[in-house]
């Protein structure tokens, strides 16, 4: 062996050591990310231990930690997500269908697409500022002082719509809807793109119109993908706090929206259902924030218990999304 070869071999040994070290650095980095997750979950569970009981789930908030519960937040979040879904699903899917199936590649379409990816990166608190001006105050077109109420009489009761909307649940839902709309549109677009063009061509060949093709062939095939995207977006909405604070969610509320605190009450007194969207509200996340800020030590346990409930709900949402995705993958294989 020449000197050069000996030197090369010596350096090679060091290079292999560096390579192995680097591999371990990467492994440890990945491991530490997983470790953070484990510690975070363990910490929350540890703090919540013993506090997550029926009293916590069925009681309203209280100044005394032992009596405080999450019921107002549970109802608030449920209502918020319900309305958010009602607004987002048709609008998001509709926009995606337009962009994928109808839109030609012109300037306006490109503008919408560019706009979507930028909207997805706007901080959620900015949406809150939009929400408080556009929905809560309605741009000051009707001043709050001389605001009025639009009453619509329905068979089961009267729908009283305050104008401007004020710090009500519906304003919160509108805000969350705008927040997750870009996410829903982008996910739905991807799902629609995954439907092979052959299906569309086959449908056109049978004499179907554009809309018939979309309605009966393309959309059903894309439903699993769209549903997955929507569920994930809704779970993001569920975890949001900042925009709700800006819109004006109440940090301390001891009643559910519309005073509707059991599902039975909806049947007994339908008026409460009609009142709920225009009532003040709180959410799980707002209640957690409020508890974190309390000086008494026990409230930290309540915050942990609330976080745990939120995490469990998110796991359920995500698991549903995964199940839908896996089922669809098994059933349809192009």
């Amino acid at each position: 062996m020449s000197d050069q070869q000996i030197e090369y071999a010596a350096i090679l040994k060091r290079r292999h050591r560096i390579s192995t070290c680097f591999e371990w650095v990467c492994r440890i980095a990945t491991g530490s990310a997983l470790l953070f997750l484990a510690v975070l979950l363990a910490g929350v569970i540890w703090q919540a231990w013993g506090w997550l009981d029926t009293q916590f789930l069925t009681g309203f908030d209280s100044r005394r930690p032992g009596k405080a519960g999450l019921l107002a937040g549970l109802w608030g979040t449920s209502w918020l997500i319900f309305f958010t879904a009602i607004f987002t699903v048709p609008m998001g899917v509709g926009a995606a269908v337009y962009l994928e199936e109808y839109a030609t590649d012109n300037r306006f379409t490109r503008l919408i697409k560019l706009n979507l990816s930028n909207l997805a990166g706007v901080p959620s608190i900015v949406y809150g500022m939009l929400g408080v001006t556009a929905f809560v105050r309605m741009f000051g077109m009707i001043s709050a002082a001389d605001g009025w109420t639009l009453a619509v009489s329905l068979g089961i009761g009267t729908l009283e719509i305050p104008l401007p909307l004020g710090r009500c649940l519906l304003a919160g839902s509108f805000t969350l809807s705008l927040l997750i709309l870009p996410v829903v549109i982008i996910a739905s677009q991807e799902a629609l793109r995954a439907v092979p063009p052959s299906i569309r061509h086959a449908s056109y060949a049978l004499g179907a119109t554009e809309w018939q093709t979309i309605r009966h062939q393309v959309l059903p095939a894309a439903v699993p993908g769209i549903a997955t995207g929507i569920i994930l977006a809704l779970s993001r909405a569920m975890g949001e706090t900042a925009p709700l604070i800006v819109v004006g969610a109440m940090s301390y509320v001891a009643f559910a929206p519309g005073n509707l605190d059991t599902p039975m009450a909806a049947v007994q007194d339908p008026q409460r259902v009609l009142d709920a969207p225009f009532d003040v509200f709180t959410s799980i996340t707002i209640q957690i924030t409020n508890w974190i800020e309390q000086p008494k030590e026990e409230f930290q346990n309540l915050a942990a218990a609330g976080s745990l409930v939120l995490l469990i709900l998110l796991v359920i949402f995500n698991a549903t999304a995964i199940v839908i995705r896996n089922r669809a993958q098994k059933k349809i294989s192009w």
């Binding site: 996340t285 974190i292 939120l310 998110l314």
Partner: peptide, 12 residues
Amino acid sequence: LAGIPTVVYGYF
């Protein structure tokens, strides 16, 4: 990790 609500991170 990406799906955990930010309020939980704040708490942590």
